[in-house]
């Protein structure tokens, strides 16, 4: 289903500094000011497969490359080296509400965000009620999203992303959104998706929620794959290692 083969991802730290015409000229005439090419390998030779229906958690410290791997799988980034294959309709929940336009109302954003996720108009017309119902935001349908609280935005985004049963669901630390009631609801929704055979890649710092949801886990450290296997073994090993450091 998802095949990651010798994937490496290189970031050029230098490009982030100053990109104005002024600096380009200065660099042209003054070699000393030229950016030293500073590379940073966010992923180093990562290699794994995920079968259909598997629920895989990814653990690792900040900067381990968790989010990068999600972006590579969802096609947002092309890897510097290696091959990524993902067969199936992907629903990325890397950041909830990324496709929202604050100026537009919730109603308009459902259509815009749906279109961004690749839904058709007919399908959105049909599922509109269901989305509104799930998001619990019926009273705020005609309010611009910029006036929403972060919890409300996340609820709306979650409802749109999960309205179809995606074949691959990519989730980055989002189940802690909304109030307790919604958290419970979204967790149940995830569970029902998983039972329906959706392949899930789930990134979280909460080892408990990973153990609850996932069957397998991957431990990343500084861009390298440390361990992959049974969720409990990986999580425990990761936890021990982290505690040991302190």
């Amino acid at each position: 289903m998802i095949k990651i083969e010798n994937v490496s991802m290189k970031f050029n730290l230098g490009v982030e500094t100053d990109n104005s015409l002024k600096m380009i000229f200065i660099r042209l005439f003054n070699p000393k000011k030229r950016n030293k090419k500073q590379y940073f390998w966010a992923l180093k030779d990562i290699d794994f497969n995920i079968q259909k229906g598997e629920v895989v958690g990814i653990v690792g410290a900040n900067g381990a490359g968790k989010s990068t791997i999600l972006k590579v799988v969802s096609g947002v980034m092309k890897p510097t080296k290696g091959i990524v294959e993902a067969n199936g309709k992907i629903s990325p929940m890397i950041e909830l509400g990324a496709g929202f336009d604050g100026e537009l109302t919730a109603r308009e954003n459902i259509y815009l965000n749906g279109a961004i996720l690749g839904y058709s108009k007919e399908m959105l017309d049909e599922k509109f009620e269901e989305i509104v119902e799930f998001s619990e935001l019926r009273d705020f349908l005609d309010v611009p999203v910029k006036n929403f609280s972060s919890g409300m935005t996340a609820k709306l985004a979650f409802s749109i992303s999960t309205i179809v049963d995606p074949e691959i669901l990519i989730v980055d630390e989002i189940l802690s959104v909304g109030d307790i009631k919604f958290q419970e609801k979204s967790k149940n929704k995830m569970m029902s998706l998983i039972k329906g055979g959706t392949t899930v890649i789930y990134v979280s710092h909460s080892l408990q929620s990973i153990k609850d949801l996932c069957t397998k886990a991957i431990w990343l450290d500084k861009g390298e794959l440390v361990m992959m296997g049974n969720v409990n073994e990986v999580c425990d090993a990761y936890y021990d290692k982290q505690m040991e450091k302190q």
Partner: peptide, 20 residues
Amino acid sequence: VKYKFLLTELVKRDFKIKYK
């Protein structure tokens, strides 16, 4: 064909925001 709907939604968004 695949992204026709997205295209119309993006155009609609620009339109709504311009005359808001």
